[in-house]
Amino acid sequence: MTPASLSGGPEPAARAAVVSVPVGATRRAWWRTHSAQRYVFGYTLLAPAALYVLLLVGAPFVFSLWLAVSDANVSDPVARFIGLENFRSAWEMETFWIAFQNSVVFLVVAAIFKSVLGTSLAFLLLQQFKGKKLIRGLVVIPFTLPIAISVLSWKWMYDSQFSVINWALSRAGLIGGYGSPDWPIWLGQPHLALAACIAVNVWRTFPFSAIVLLAGFTAVPLEVLDAAKVDGCTFMQRFRHVVVPMIFPILMIGFLFDTVFTLSDLSVVYLLTQGGPGNASKILPVLAYQVGIQAGNLGRGAAIALFLVPLLFPALFLVLRNLKRREW
């Protein structure tokens, strides 16, 4: 690669002396090129974030991969390699499959409700009307309360005896009184229990969806919309062909991160039902917590938690595609 190797002149030394100036010049020029500067600048900007997550997530993650293939547990500080044994134990567990299924149901149902509610709310908040600030402020409160505490309020609202929801339904004549067969036991009937947990997740995060969308909508320059309007596009056409493509990256990201948050969050289920009644609302993170932490089988707990990752692959696939298609 050196200039000398490329040349075959009889006077290499002299030649080198002559050529060295232009070579040096091109080198300096390489450093000065636009793209080189951009690279240095770019990687410098990227470094802090990349290092942070690499050190504090990457390294611990590798450690937990090791946990998953070892017999690590709290009773013995020294762990041995046992291959895929922990995954096999998970597969053998009936509860694991119930939790797996519940996780999928939780994710899909919650996503549907959140996108419907979030989109509608974002559209409404785009309108100009009096009291907008107040309403916007009210609607985002669920998202700003610490989840660990607001779930406890829901627990109180779902109480089997003092549920205010049931009180209202009962006074409205929709259900019977306390003790009657149609008095819903929110956290005690298998399907209701899972639904109740999903409802809390939706309640808490649809303002989030709405805000992300709103941010996206507002980022669309008004001129573009006006131009489309002038061109005679209907509302739906404008939405589909102008707004959606422009906000697509933000939309995607909001959606994906919410998916991850929903899937890996254990606090709602853990605090409401611990996964009961009879595993009806058990989801993977809760099971992993119970097996891995509470019962001390670190390895098996890690294996169960790692099953979350394949569940997230479809999401990852979408991101990849999105990125490829939107290369500038």
């Binding site: 997530v57 992993a288 891995g292 990752v309």
Partner: peptide, 10 residues
Amino acid sequence: LTYLVPAIIL
């Protein structure tokens, strides 16, 4: 990907 790793593992 780092965001995919659940807190319970970390």
